[in-house]
């Protein structure tokens, strides 16, 4: 690992900071964040183009450009997901932390403690990686929702080129959801899930940082998290 300007973890320390989020984790976080923001904005415009251009059609390409931006961001999101999916398997133990292994009792216990912490302000065990609740929320609202959006999105993208590459890869999604219209409806409705997630995500990171003074927000820039004795480290495979 790189050397640090400040040596905050001297030998025998009972607290300090350590590298947790590796570069691919941080990179995919930000690519995903910016891509989803842009995708939501352009997507809402595509669904209901509030502005109409004036003049002759040959002078304008508004809808075409907005769709183009949407598709470009979709590619960024796709490759960001591929990289993050790969890193789930090859990254450090924190890249897998919190993932809902629902057959494990300790995952459920950690989930319960975390819920209790937010509801009753009862400080539970501190996890250095993602806790169970965070893992569950990322698994459903980023992973699950993201793959739903990628699946339905690229299926609709493939419609302009029947029989093409994306049609072969994602074309089956359209009959699965009951046709082209239903696929659009699901894609559009599900996009709001990201808004809900965004609100929760923003609140939780602010709450955590302000309430516990743990510098949580800076960890997605620097990759380092603060720790003290008694914090739960992650399992080698998952936490």
């Amino acid at each position: 690992m790189p050397t640090y300007a400040l040596k905050l973890t001297p030998r025998g320390a009972r607290f300090g900071h350590r590298p947790v989020w590796e570069i691919p984790v941080r990179l995919t976080h930000w690519v995903t964040a910016f891509a989803i923001t842009a995708l939501f904005g352009t997507g809402m415009f595509i669904s209901w183009p509030v502005v109409s251009s004036q003049g002759e059609p040959f002078q304008n390409f508004l809808m075409g450009r907005v769709r183009e931006v949407h598709f470009i961001c979709a590619y960024f999101l796709l490759f960001s997901f591929i990289l993050r999916g790969y890193w789930f398997f090859v990254g450090n133990k924190y890249s897998r932390s919190g993932v809902p292994l629902i057959w494990r009792k300790d995952w459920w216990r950690a989930l319960w403690h975390q819920v209790l912490e937010y509801v009753a302000t009862k400080r539970g065990p501190v996890t250095i990686g993602h806790n169970s609740l965070a893992g569950l929320s990322y698994f459903l609202f980023v992973g699950g929702l993201g793959f739903l959006m990628i699946g339905t999105g690229f299926a609709m993208y493939s419609e302009t080129n029947p029989g093409g590459f994306w049609d072969k890869l994602f074309g089956w999604v359209i009959p699965l959801f009951g046709g082209s219209y239903r696929t659009r409806l699901i894609h559009h409705t599900a996009a709001w899930g990201f808004v809900i997630f965004f609100l929760f995500h923003m609140y939780i990171i602010l709450f955590d940082s302000v309430r516990w003074h743990n510098g949580l927000i800076s960890s997605i820039f620097s990759g380092d998290k603060f720790w003290e004795d008694g914090d739960l480290d992650s399992d080698d495979w998952v936490s």
Partner: peptide, 15 residues
């Protein structure tokens, strides 16, 4: 949509 003669208006954003 892909063969519609009004498609240029769609791409131009004229509705």
């Amino acid at each position: 949509h892909d063969k519609c003669y009004r498609r240029p208006f769609f791409d131009a954003g004229q509705f």
